[in-house]
Amino acid sequence: MTTVEPDITAAITATVTAYLDAVSRGSSADIAALYAENGTLEDPVGSEPVVGREAIAAFFGALEGRTQEIELLTLRVSGSSAAFHFRVVTPMGDKIYEVSPIDVMTFDENAKITSTRAFWAMSDMAVR
């Protein structure tokens, strides 16, 4: 008899949605709470990975109190991983910054993020 793993697609989708909501509200504590205790963040890919909830909260501290517009463009969940493309629009002073990264995340059995790899480069950033 084959054991069937439980489908956590809905839980992963909810975590991705909560992640994007927390990023849009600029809440570093809420973002970090979505990660497993020793989760990792590589943002952008090629940079030194940030390890652990406390370090991840510090990384996102620059967003604290800043409201951004975020639009989920596409999401694919497969097994315990997700890849999603989204747009971030950030007003800063008299300029508006826009970038559309592709994030790849892995999740544990509780749909906590175990790793994030954010695919984007400064050359992808548009300034209006």
Score class of each variant (00 low, 15 high):
68 Q>C: 10
116 T>C: 13
18 A>D: 14
47 S>K: 10
80 S>V: 02
44 P>F: 11
83 A>K: 04
121 A>T: 15
58 A>Q: 14
17 T>H: 10
28 S>Y: 01
27 S>H: 10
65 G>C: 00
17 T>Q: 12
11 A>R: 12
73 L>E: 12
115 S>I: 04
87 R>A: 11
123 S>T: 14
30 D>C: 00
110 N>I: 01
59 F>E: 06
79 G>I: 03
121 A>H: 13
60 F>L: 05
74 T>C: 07
63 L>S: 13
45 V>D: 09
118 A>Q: 10
48 E>W: 03
8 I>A: 06
22 A>D: 03
52 G>N: 00
30 D>K: 06
24 S>E: 01
114 T>P: 06
17 T>M: 02
16 V>S: 01
55 A>K: 09
126 A>D: 05
97 Y>M: 13
15 T>W: 02
66 R>W: 06
12 I>E: 01
11 A>W: 05
1 M>D: 11
104 V>E: 10
9 T>I: 06
19 Y>L: 15
24 S>D: 03
104 V>K: 03
101 P>T: 06
90 T>D: 12
100 S>L: 03
14 A>S: 13
6 P>V: 11
122 M>I: 09
61 G>L: 02
22 A>C: 01
62 A>H: 08
23 V>H: 07
95 K>G: 01
80 S>K: 10
3 T>G: 07
27 S>F: 00
76 R>T: 15
54 E>S: 13
19 Y>E: 09
70 I>R: 12
110 N>V: 03
81 S>N: 12
5 E>Q: 13
30 D>S: 02
25 R>M: 07
17 T>L: 06
81 S>A: 14
2 T>Q: 11
108 D>H: 11
61 G>E: 02
111 A>N: 07
85 H>Y: 09
98 E>T: 15
98 E>C: 12
14 A>K: 12
95 K>Q: 14
95 K>A: 13
112 K>W: 05
82 A>T: 05
102 I>R: 10
85 H>R: 12
75 L>R: 10
75 L>Q: 13
48 E>H: 05
128 R>S: 11
39 G>K: 07
62 A>Q: 11
123 S>L: 04
65 G>K: 04
106 T>Q: 11
74 T>R: 15
120 W>C: 07
104 V>R: 11
7 D>E: 04
60 F>V: 03
80 S>M: 09
125 M>T: 09
44 P>E: 01
3 T>A: 11
43 D>E: 12
35 Y>I: 05
48 E>A: 12
128 R>N: 07
84 F>I: 06
114 T>H: 04
7 D>G: 03
89 V>T: 15
7 D>N: 15
99 V>D: 05
67 T>A: 14
105 M>V: 08
76 R>K: 09
119 F>N: 13
16 V>N: 13
61 G>H: 05
14 A>W: 04
16 V>F: 00
119 F>Y: 15
117 R>D: 08
12 I>V: 15
41 L>A: 07
92 M>W: 04
94 D>V: 06
104 V>I: 15
101 P>Y: 07
79 G>S: 03
81 S>E: 15
93 G>M: 02
121 A>V: 08
76 R>W: 05
54 E>P: 01
82 A>P: 00
66 R>M: 12
1 M>Q: 11
70 I>P: 02
38 N>K: 12
117 R>Y: 03
64 E>A: 15
69 E>Y: 09
20 L>S: 08
55 A>Q: 10
